[in-house]
Simulated scan of single mutants.
Amino acid sequence: MNSHKYLLALQNRIIQEDLDGELKNYIKGLEGENYFKMILEEHEVKNFIHDINLNIKSRVQIDFLVVTDTTIFHLEIKHYSGDYSIQDGQLLNDYGNMFYSPFQQIQRANYEISHIISHYNIKRALKSFLIFTNPQFTLKTAKPSNFNILLPTELHKLAYMFKDDYSEENSEIINIFKKENKD
């Protein structure tokens, strides 16, 4: 049993308040990723990879890559709940806590993904999205124009994003990324 499944199995058997903050956030992240994976499967998205670690120039963890006929989608999933705002490129909750910037995380991951695209001469554009999955998440400020963000109320748009007529070719690209995955 992998550690993700193990932690999710424990979730209903432990007292949440006794967990330290980091483990709570990790479990919340797994909940969001599992929820998002179910959405992809519901829309019959075939060519995706989940939880990939790349380490070409720097180590990064990527939640999802979806390969379509024209695009490689890098999808960073956040399962935050509560009211948030974006100020000076940082994500802040209503209590004034600043979170490690998911925007910087996306940029670092894009650098690694772009290196693989270039090295293997993959003919696909790279497009990244920050996706908030928790229905209790609210963004109180405008979305930054330089990043693609999907809010929980916009997840229906996923059904139209992933065109896959060249499934075999797209599958080969997924296999390249699987080969580059570093534990």
Rank of each mutant, 00 (worst) to 15 (best):
N2P: 07
S3L: 14
H4L: 11
H4W: 02
Y6S: 08
L7M: 14
A9N: 09
A9Q: 05
L10C: 08
R13E: 14
E17R: 13
D18M: 08
L19I: 07
G21C: 08
G21K: 14
E22R: 14
K24Y: 03
K24L: 12
Y26S: 13
I27S: 06
I27T: 12
L30R: 05
L30G: 06
L30F: 05
G32E: 02
G32H: 06
E33Y: 04
N34I: 11
Y35A: 09
Y35V: 07
F36A: 04
F36L: 06
L40M: 06
L40G: 07
E42H: 10
E44P: 01
I49G: 04
H50I: 00
I52Y: 02
I52H: 02
I52M: 07
I52K: 02
N53A: 10
N53V: 10
N55V: 07
I56Q: 10
K57G: 09
R59H: 11
V60Y: 01
Q61F: 05
Q61S: 08
I62F: 00
F64G: 03
L65S: 08
V66E: 01
T71S: 06
F73K: 09
H74Y: 02
L75E: 02
E76I: 03
E76N: 12
I77H: 04
I77S: 03
I77E: 03
I77V: 13
I77M: 00
K78G: 01
K78D: 07
H79T: 08
H79Q: 10
D83C: 09
S85A: 10
I86Y: 08
Q87P: 01
Q87T: 14
Q87K: 15
G89M: 06
G89T: 02
Q90G: 02
L91C: 11
L91I: 14
L92V: 12
N93F: 03
N97E: 14
M98Q: 15
M98D: 10
M98C: 12
F99D: 11
F99S: 10
F99G: 11
Y100M: 07
F103E: 12
F103V: 06
F103Y: 11
Q104K: 13
Q105V: 05
Q105R: 10
R108G: 01
R108A: 05
R108T: 02
A109G: 07
A109Q: 12
Y111K: 13
E112G: 05
S114F: 03
H115V: 00
I116R: 04
I117A: 06
S118Y: 13
S118R: 14
H119N: 14
H119V: 12
R124Y: 10
K127V: 02
S128L: 04
F129D: 08
I131R: 08
T133S: 10
N134D: 14
Q136V: 05
Q136M: 13
Q136L: 14
F137R: 14
